[in-house]
Nucleic acid binder design. Structure first.
Length: 632
RNA sequence: GGUUCCGUAGCUCAGCUGGAUAGAGCAACUGCCUUCUAAGCAGUGGGUCACUGGUUCGAAUCCAGUCGGAAUCACCA
């Protein structure tokens, strides 16, 4: 409620400001319309209602909440009068009736209204909708917000280099990529960052197995993708390790002892020590194998059309943060235990005591995260910083942010953990050790294959060249996968059933892409007939079909949806919106003939509507990193 | 055990800054292609919004508790 009041107040101030500016600077007004076509109807209605409340009932400073009218009633916006009936001193019906009468008499916005109980349903005049469509049509980059002159870093992907990417990574990557695009649209300058975990015991495990049984294999000699090859040796290590543990247990050790004393692990630890001492051969092997992995990742990223602006390597950052520990000690925020380890007391923040440096002076996970936070800020002077990391680390980020807050970092306010739920299989959690992971490359290939099969069954694209067809399968397959993972609210855990392939019907990317292709087909036909696809309607006096009105209403909401998605860090908002817009358009499409419309003006109007739907679909899907085909 | 998150149709999910008779898709069934792409549209059936209480004109939505599930509470990352 509070949020809404502020929002309304800001809108009001802005509106007044612009009205004042209007006469001074006409251009500014158009910029305003360009970025906030929403304002036109919504704010005008709110203002008119505010007037009405004041004139009729003497009520001022009332928060005016407008809702979308439900399908089963006639109208576009609904004003619920229950909250004001006490102040109005009339029955809900009378109150609503009086307000409706006032609006009808004093504004040109309303075509009609009806009152049901305490609900005032307002139907916006067709003319206003057509003007809205025209204004959207004339807006270059409809949906793009004005630059906020703020920088925001989005860190995502953050893979380990000892094994290939899997389905869980894909959710992370798609989320990070989509939220980056959304924030950019919302006016931020976005820096996409990837913090690669390229060092540590797990990498040494792959390296050790390679030394033992690699026989000089390379991605080139084996034809195996680099990350897959390295992953193969990681699995090999695990097998050796497991066998050794088994043997030791048979010799009478406990499970725990065996796990600690197995020769393979000791050797891997030795390798890590050598790495830390800069042992040339070890470093060389490490570099070589990591490069294979990077090449492999790069191929996957290219396949899913994801890129980064900045790559951090943990081998560069893992020693950072020790100076911050020193700083914290000096400021009295951290304390030292007798054994020499350093801690922070976060019980005030309802967290616990947390270790920030080991007794032997070596870092823990959070130490380097403290250092990296400073590094990011110093590198880019960022105003906000987002970490796309799974919800298993919720506690870690609470602690990290609380520490940075206590240290008085001025960027601490702008930190946000975009936490998301795990992708589970019907059998439960994905476990790499048990071989139940869904490999990213395999899944992508499968999706493309399914898209191909489905396209061939329908047989509508015989005109396309082989290259174009391949591109189409790519767009459809990858799109379906992205949409599948993005349409669910990030924080919810989700289920993926490999047995049932991802749908291409219903609430899917394919459905939305298909609708874009339909629009494109209209465009081709218009060109054949020599009709300009983008011409604006000649008149605003056309009668609107209910489905046409609904489509314009959907288009009109696009900027507001972007705002909601950006502020709530939720690409799912965009996915749901794209789906609703698409459904509305398909309803229109099946109920209204475009080229057989009664008048030229109507044909123009409907083409203009279709054209705009095509644009917004393309934009909305682009925000999710999904491409659109012109035919399918 | 403490903390956090989740629980809506057979399945997968919307709706959650409180508003009218809780919505989609999949699956099942029924219509609609002498062509603006049927990967579509229209319709039928399917619900104790986990449960109990509270707040109020009004609760799937807010609060408390209970039950179920997950994560976390590491000198792993």
């Amino acid at each position: 409620m509070k949020h809404y009041k502020i929002c309304f107040a800001l809108q009001l101030i802005f509106f007044i400001f612009l009205q004042a500016k209007f006469y001074l600077c006409r251009a500014k007004f158009f910029v305003f319309i360009a970025y906030f076509p929403m304002m036109n109807i919504h704010t005008q209605l709110q203002n008119a209602l505010a007037d009405a409340l004041k004139v009729i009932f003497g009520i001022e400073n009332q928060t005016i909440v407008l809702e979308k009218t439900r399908e089963e009633f006639e109208g576009d916006f609904t004003f619920v009068v229950f909250p004001i009936v006490k102040l109005a001193k009339k029955s809900p019906e009378q109150t609503a009736q009086l307000l409706g009468d006032y609006l009808e008499k004093n504004t040109t916005l309303i075509a009609k209204f009806n009152v049901i109980k305490g609900f005032l349903n307002l139907k916006i005049a067709d003319k206003v909708w057509i003007e809205t469509l025209n204004s959207i049509q004339q807006t270059p980059n409809f949906g793009q917000f004005e630059p906020k002159n703020q920088r925001i870093m989005v860190e995502f992907a953050s893979p380990n280099t000892n094994k290939p990417l899997h389905l869980g990574h894909l959710r992370n990557i798609f989320l990070g990529d989509a939220i980056s695009r959304i924030l950019q649209m919302y006016g931020y300058q976005v820096i996409k960052a990837n913090l690669i975990n390229d060092r540590g015991i797990h990498i040494c495990k792959s390296m050790l197995a390679y030394q033992k049984m690699g026989e000089g294999q390379t991605p080139q000699t084996t034809g195996i993708k680099g990350d897959k090859l390295v992953g193969k040796f990681y699995v090999a290590f695990e097998q050796i390790y497991k066998r050794e543990i088994q043997q030791l247990i048979e010799q009478g050790l406990t499970q725990e002892q065996a796990e600690r004393q197995a020769p393979a692990l000791l050797e891997a630890q030795e390798l890590l020590r050598k790495w830390e001492e800069n042992h040339p051969e070890t470093i060389q092997l490490w570099k070589t194998m990591n490069q294979w992995v990077y090449d492999g990742f790069e191929a996957t990223f290219r396949e899913i059309n994801v890129s980064f602006d900045k790559i951090y390597y943990e081998s560069d950052t893992y020693l950072l943060g020790k100076d911050i520990v020193e700083e914290g000690l000096q400021k009295g925020i951290f304390y030292k235990k007798p054994d020499g380890s350093v801690w922070i007391d976060l019980t005030e923040e309802k967290l616990d005591h947390k270790l920030v440096l080991r007794a032997d002076g070596t870092s823990v996970y959070i130490t380097q995260d403290l250092g990296t936070a400073d590094l990011k800020y110093n590198d880019f002077q960022i105003d906000k910083s987002i970490y796309v990391v799974g919800n298993e680390q919720d506690y870690h980020f609470k602690v990290l942010f609380a520490i940075l807050q206590k240290l008085g970092r001025n960027y601490a306010q702008g930190l946000y953990h975009l936490s998301y739920g795990m992708v589970d299989l019907p059998s439960g959690k994905m476990k790499s050790r048990e071989g139940t992971v869904v490999d990213a490359d395999d899944l992508i290939a499968e999706m493309k294959q399914t898209a191909k099969k489905r396209t061939q069954e329908l047989g509508k694209v015989s005109e396309l060249s082989e290259i174009e067809k391949e591109k189409l399968y790519q767009i459809l397959g990858v799109g379906a996968l992205k949409y599948f993972l993005l349409k669910v609210e990030p924080k919810k855990r989700m289920l993926f059933n490999p047995e049932e392939s991802i749908d291409f019907q219903g609430n899917t990317a394919s459905f939305i892409q298909y609708t874009f292709a339909r629009v494109h087909s209209l465009k081709r036909k218009a060109e054949e007939l020599g009709i300009n696809f983008t011409t604006l309607p000649a008149t605003t006096d056309l009668p609107l079909h209910p489905t046409e009105q609904k489509v314009i209403f959907m288009l009109y909401q696009f900027p507001a949806v972007i705002q909601k998605a950006a502020e709530g860090y939720s690409p799912a908002e965009i996915a749901n919106y794209a789906y609703d817009l698409t459904r509305a358009f398909n309803q229109f499409y099946s109920e209204c003939s475009i080229f057989k419309a009664e008048t030229e003006a109507q044909i123009q109007f409907r083409l203009s509507l279709a054209n705009q739907v095509g644009h917004v679909i393309q934009q909305a899907l682009a925000l999710l990193g999904i491409e659109v085909p012109e035919r399918m």
